[in-house]
Structures are given as C-alpha cells and as structure tokens.
Computed example of a mutant assay.
Amino acid sequence: MTAFEKLDRFLRNLYDTAFYFAMMAVKENFRDYIRRAGPQGTPTDEIVLLANGPSLRDELPELIARGEHLRKDFLAVNYFAEDERFTTVRPKYYILSDPTFFRRCCDWERVERLYAVLNERVAWPMTLYVQFYNPEHFDYRAALPNPLIRIVRFHSQTYCGFPSLGYWCFRHGLGNGNYGSVIQNGEYVALQLGYKVLHLYGVDHTFFDGFCVDDENRACVRRTYFYDAAPQLKPLMLTSVNPPRPYTVHSYLAEKCELFRGHEILARYAERIGARIVNHTRGSLIDTYERA
C-alpha cells in the first residue's frame, strides 16, 4: 500500500468514525441497554438461535426430539411465536428488528396478531429486544402489557470507521456490525450476554431463490419461511424508510452484500472475545462460521 493509499484510508476512517459518533449522539445515545438488563435468569454456556429459514421445518422437530430446549437457552425472532411449538421451546429471548414491527405499514394486521399471540402465549420470563431507533415512538409496552415480557432496547446505528475502535463500540453495546438480518442482531445480543457457543439454525440466507423482475419492473423474490405453507413470489419493499419504497435490483444486491459482510464482522468479533458461532443449517449460503 502506497503512502497516499494509507493517508486516504486514514482520512476515510477518521470521517466515518466522527460521523458515527455524531449520529449516535443525535439519534440514539451511549447506553449499553443489553448489559444493563443482563441475561434472563441463570444463563447456560450455549445458546440456540432460531432464524426463520425453510430448513427450520426439519431442524426444529429434531431439536425438540433431542431435548435441546431443556438443556440450552433459546432465542427466536420475528413471527416464530405464531408456530405451535413456541410454547414447547419457551425461548428466553426474542428479537424484533425490522421497522415493520413499529411502523404501521406493510401487513400491519399481521404485526398486531403477533403482539396478541405474544401477550397470550408467553407464560414464562422472556426478554424481548427491540431497536432503540423508533422515530414513530411506537409504544411496545402498550402493545405488550404481559408482565412476563421484559422489553430491552439495542442500538442499531451502523458503525463504519477504525476497526479497532469498532470492537470497543461493540463490547460497550453501541452500534452493530452492518447487520441486515434479524438473526445477526440475535447473535450480537447473545455475545453481549456472555454466551460462549452460539448454535445457528434456519439461517438459509437463500435470498436469491426466485429473484426476478416482473412485468411491472418490480424486483421480486420467492420468499420462503419455515412457517409458510408454500413459497410466494412477492415484490421487494424497503421498509427502513417511511413510506416504504420498492427495491431496485442494485439496492437489493448491495444490501445483501453488506449483510454477508456483517457476518464476517460478527465472526471476527466472536473470535476476539473468545466465543464460537456454529452454523447447523444445511445448505446455508453463509461461508463465515464454523459448520457443524
């Protein structure tokens, strides 16, 4: 690397780092909510994280048959509570990180059903993690009055800048590793809670199955979740803005590139703090973690 390239990288990192801290000061704050709240009950050394990929249809019955839910802590995400096995698994932790869960758009009726299901079914102490970023000031406690559900916020401002300083931010609960998937936020939370081995299931990440552009020039993908009866071809909508807008092919591919880079950041962070992330998902596109 030439002297000019080194100077260019230094100046870019300096700008990105300063911009990150400015955004945290304006949009969020510098409190580590995850560690302040601590783990739910007495944690085990290992935790199972359930994503919603189609492989979970086969993996979840195997996990239950082996009694993994009786020996390890579990973390679930998004609409897992709608599955009848939710009350069998009884996850200690639950993550909601998509803006659709606080923004009244894009299938809000289903979101309301999810909150009703969580209120009704949770009969054990459970921690729900939600984004600090909530510009609409959605009241999670009003939607989830169940006293057994503890609500804890986490930061979601993307960190870019000097890598070594980034790890300091991660250890102190600030920002994230460019995560583009709810399960990545789950991994980060689990690492912050002190779990030493993270077991991933349902992280197929087959984001390009059925990816196409329809006759109306809309980018579409064949969405497959373990709780869906059949895959559905749906237009892709960017929900991080309000109102949501359609993805372009370029913006969708760019976002997924960042998502996989986020897995690389998480893998390095886990190694740095002496933890392991093990991917048990058959056919997963993630090439970063140790394979079971």
Rank of each mutant, 00 (worst) to 15 (best):
C160R: 14
N146M: 02
Y129D: 00
Y195F: 15
L191D: 13
P147M: 02
Q184W: 12
R171G: 07
C212R: 14
E187M: 15
Y159L: 00
H137M: 09
Y159V: 03
V152I: 08
S181E: 14
V130M: 03
D139E: 06
G210F: 10
L174M: 14
Y140H: 07
D215P: 00
A190P: 07
E136A: 13
V213M: 12
S156W: 01
D204K: 07
A142I: 00
V213G: 07
Q184M: 15
G173I: 10
L174R: 01
H172W: 07
N185F: 15
G161F: 11
E120L: 11
V197H: 13
A190Y: 05
V182W: 13
R153N: 06
G161E: 10
D139M: 09
H205D: 11
L148N: 05
P145F: 09
V203S: 10
V203N: 15
F162E: 06
Y188V: 10
V122I: 10
G180R: 15
Y133S: 05
V182T: 15
F211H: 02
D204L: 12
H172V: 02
W168M: 07
I149E: 00
Y159A: 01
G202T: 07
F211D: 03
L198G: 08
H137V: 01
A143M: 06
P125L: 00
V213D: 08
P125F: 03
R171N: 15
Q192N: 15
C160H: 14
S181W: 13
I149A: 03
V197W: 03
I183E: 11
L165D: 02
L165A: 15
G166H: 11
V152G: 03
N146S: 05
D204N: 14
F132R: 03
Y133C: 00
D215C: 05
S181Y: 10
E120F: 04
Y133N: 01
N185W: 09
F170C: 05
Y188G: 04
G180T: 10
I151G: 02
V197C: 11
H205V: 06
L174W: 09
P125C: 00
F138R: 09
V197A: 11
N134V: 01
N178L: 13
T206V: 05
R153D: 01
N134H: 03
R153E: 13
L148D: 07
N176A: 10
V182E: 10
G175D: 06
H172Y: 11
I183M: 14
G194C: 07
E120W: 04
T127E: 04
T158W: 10
H172M: 03
G177R: 11
G194Q: 09
T158Y: 08
P135E: 09
N146L: 04
